[in-house]
Each structure stands twice: as C-alpha cells, then as structure tokens.
Design a protein around this nucleic acid. Structure first.
Length: 271
DNA sequence: AAAAGCCCCTGGATGC
DNA sequence: TGCATCCAGGGGCTTT
C-alpha cells in the first residue's frame, strides 16, 4: 500500500498531534523486518520532537536519537488517545502522554529501527542510497534526465528502484508513465530530454494529487487518524487490466516487470 | 556499476 | 466445504 503519498498522508495526520509527546512505555509484537536496535525500555522518558519523511520512511525525531519507521507492503500507523487491545498484527505500540502510536502490519515487511543520529551507520544503511525527493525543487529536470541516461533498465523499474527518485511505488509508477505517455518497458537511457521533463512533471503531479486525496486505499490503508484515501478511484491504468483506457478506450494491458504487475495503455503509451 | 532474481510474511481471491 | 495456487502497495541482499 504505502508509497510516498500514503506515507506523507500518515505523516500529516500524525505530526502535529505527536510532537512533544513523552514516551511512557513500548510494546512489541512479533518481529518486524529488522530488530529495533535498542532495548525498548531505553526509549522510555524520551520525547518525540517531530515527524519527518524521507522516501517511504517516516523519521520520528526524538530529543535523543530517532526512530525510522517503514510500512512495508501492508503496514499502517494509527495514533489515538486510546487503542483497542492489541491484535495479532499490531507489532509496535508507543505509549505516550499524548496517545498511543500503533503499527499494524500483517505481512511484517515493515520496520521500526532506532538510530542514535541521522548520520549513524544504522540510519545511513537505510537512507544512504535514496534518490531525490520528487516534491522538492531538488527534483531537477537536467539531473533527472542525466540520471535516466545512465540507466539501461526499463524506465518503470528505474522509477521503482528509488535510487534516482524516491517514493514512486508500483501504483504511481504506472500512473506517472501513463500521464507522460511513455511505455513502461522503454529503456530509461532512450528517453529524450523533453520526455524526461514530461515524466518528471507527471511524477510530481500524480504524487501531489494522491497526497491531496488522502492516498490510495486498496485494502486497508488509512491515515493515522483513520481516514481512508480516495486516489485509487482516479487511477488511469493501475489495476484496470482489460478495462477501457479512460482517454482513448483501448483495453488497458497488464504485463509483468521484475515480478511486479505493470499497467499501461498500448495506444496512449506507444513507445 | 548496474541489472535481475530471490526472499521475507500473511491473507484474500480464485479454481478445482 | 476444503485445499492448492497465485497474487498483493517494498526493498535489501545476493548473484550475474
């Protein structure tokens, strides 16, 4: 579920409410992708200062150190003064004087990792290879085109890789390529400067609109205050195999790239 | 260096 | 109803 828009929507629904919260206790469920990296009790007494986002990671800045949270494929975070009794898929609860932050993650591809500082080895291992933030000015047309130029993989997979630009997952990669009129199988190196600019604009546009719609709720995503997202209703191609293209009526095609589904319109995305 | 595969894990949908 | 198979929003790691 969680690509940049869902993670950002989570952050926005959480940051103001949790800022200043003092950690009173921590409950861990089943193991997530990686160990926490600190004794849970050592977090007690620390204060959450702010919540930032880097790619698909949420960074909880503490007055001492930070927590890196990742929602994986099936994770969601909720923050409320009270929470129901922990269920089978609630694997991390941060009890604070402002409320309980709970990570629910059935598949447990998600993670909560403590790092002493953002430049500590632990943090750099996870954040170090990440590309540019697409919704900032740093996502620059010249650098983006140059980055595409040096990659020979299909452009869809270059978008997904996250080392050129972050936050674009399987839904939004297909959507952005549709908006840019680019075939997902096209080798990144073969994209012209004007088409790279079109793709850059499409990535920004689709991600920003998805944030505005509260993200995409395909199964069970909701923001930290429980709001579902509605962007999936506007999807042009994602999960629409065989259905008519919303622009030209041609049947949307589904293929597999790197063991993930890709959707595109063979007519609107000819090359 | 870059690309391609392989997994981690659970649950829902589909097919026999 | 039961059981097997396939698929799912990610991404680090290993192998080519």
């Amino acid at each position: 579920m969680p690509e940049l828009p869902e993670v950002e929507v989570t952050r926005l629904s959480l940051a103001d409410r949790i800022a200043g919260a003092r950690i009173e206790s921590v409950r861990m469920g089943k193991p997530l992708r990686w160990p926490l990296g600190i004794a849970a009790d050592a977090l007690v007494g620390r204060t959450v200062r702010a919540v930032r986002r880097r790619g698909k990671y949420l960074l909880l800045d503490l007055d001492d150190g930070l927590l890196l949270l990742h929602l994986g494929m099936s994770g969601s975070l909720h923050f409320a003064p009270r929470q129901p009794a922990a269920g089978a898929h609630d694997h991390f609860d941060l009890y604070t004087d402002r409320g309980i932050l709970r990570l629910n993650d059935p598949r447990r591809f998600g993670a909560v990792v403590y790092a002493a500082a953002e430049d500590s080895a632990q943090a750099v291992k996870l954040l170090g290879r990440l590309g540019v933030e697409p919704l900032t000015e740093a996502f620059d047309p010249v650098a983006f085109h140059a980055g595409l130029k040096r990659r020979h993989a299909p452009v869809k997979q270059v978008l997904l890789a996250g080392d050129l630009v972050v936050g674009v997952g399987n839904i939004y990669a297909s959507e952005a390529l549709f908006l840019a009129g680019i075939r997902p199988t096209l080798r990144a190196s073969r994209i012209s400067r004007p088409r790279a600019e079109k793709l850059r604009a499409a990535v920004r546009d689709v991600l920003a609109r998805a944030v505005a719609k509260g993200g995409s709720t395909l199964r069970d995503f909701s923001s930290a205050d429980g709001q579902a997202g509605y962007f999936q209703l506007e999807a042009m191609v994602y999960d629409r195999a065989g259905l008519p293209c919303r622009v030209c009526g041609t049947a949307v095609k589904s293929i597999r790239q790197g063991q993930r589904a890709t959707y595109f319109c063979p007519n609107c995305q000819k090359s």
